[in-house]
């Protein structure tokens, strides 16, 4: 039985993809619209992209988002990788089940709850909300995604490679940096990319934990849209879609490379 492209399949596929991508396609198309009216086509133009460059607050927000994204992705990758190593390599230790549960919980936690609880925490600690609180919030919710990605790579890695390194005189730390890390590097890179994308996209958690002077790009866009959609926003969103698409492409290439890594099946 080979699957066939019946008329039914074609129709349902078309409808499905249309539902998913039509809004995005519209947005991209209208970002090149000459007209100032969002819903009326007035010819091709890149004037809104040029106008973006003159929009100080939007550029500033993009810069904030980029810095928060890079910083939080980097912290999340370090912490998430360490958590994955602890979960996979240290066998059964006290509190392992609890830690596993705690790592996975944020994956399914509604963002509103994560955001609200972080807000309460920062208020209770009397921390000034701003750049660093958003960064911290992003670290805490994207870390678990990194853990999941790295963990799946670690469990398939031949344990005897690390044992061989220790057998040859490498301390556990040297083993991690010289053997484990190079072998899980594709997954670590993929995890970073994922955390970066999550941070760049986030509106809900950032809205809860941000303060004056630290408006992220999604927050700025959302704020402007409430006053009316302008083609400029369409252009900004198109650029974001481009960045996220590139990140996801890099992510999938990195994880494919990880799968094809000769070392994976080498042991057997």
């Amino acid at each position: 039985m080979t699957p066939r492209l019946t008329a039914f399949n074609v129709v349902s596929l078309t409808l499905g993809f249309a539902f998913l991508y039509l809004p995005i396609v519209l947005l991209v198309v209208f970002s090149f619209n000459e007209s100032k009216l969002v819903t009326v086509w007035g010819g091709f133009s890149t004037r809104w992209y040029a106008a973006l460059l003159g929009n100080g607050p939007l550029l500033e927000a993009a810069w904030v988002s980029l810095r928060i994204g890079v910083l939080s992705a980097t912290f999340a990758t370090v912490l998430g990788t360490l958590a994955a190593v602890a979960l996979v390599r240290f066998g059964r230790f006290a509190g392992r089940t609890l830690l596993t549960g705690m790592v996975y919980a944020p994956l399914v936690m509604p963002e509103v709850i994560t955001g609200l609880s972080l807000l309460l925490l920062f208020v209770a600690l009397d921390v000034d909300r701003g750049f660093w609180t958003v960064t911290l919030a992003h670290v805490s919710f994207s870390m678990c995604f990194v853990t999941v990605v790295v963990q799946s790579r670690l469990v398939t890695m031949d344990r005897s490679l690390e044992e061989a390194a220790m057998d040859l005189g490498a301390t556990p730390l040297a083993t991690f940096f010289q053997v484990t890390l190079p072998l899980i590097a594709p997954a670590v890179a993929a995890g970073w990319m994922l955390a970066f994308t999550l941070s760049l996209d986030d509106l809900v958690i950032a809205s809860f934990t941000s303060g004056p002077g630290a408006t992220t790009l999604p927050m700025r866009i959302y704020g402007q849209v409430r006053l009316g959609v302008s083609p400029e926003i369409n252009a900004a969103c198109t650029i974001m879609i481009g960045v996220v698409t590139l990140a996801i492409l890099a992510f999938s290439i990195a994880s494919k490379r990880g799968l094809a890594e000769p070392g994976r099946a080498e042991g057997a």
């Binding site: 490679l161 220790m166 057998d167 490498a170 000769p262």
Partner: peptide, 20 residues
């Protein structure tokens, strides 16, 4: 005495050569 300080060396069944 941890494994990395024992003056013995092992040849693993899977050989465990470092692929990178």
């Amino acid at each position: 005495v941890p494994a990395h300080r024992r003056p013995v060396n092992m040849m693993f069944q899977s050989y465990a050569l470092f692929p990178h």
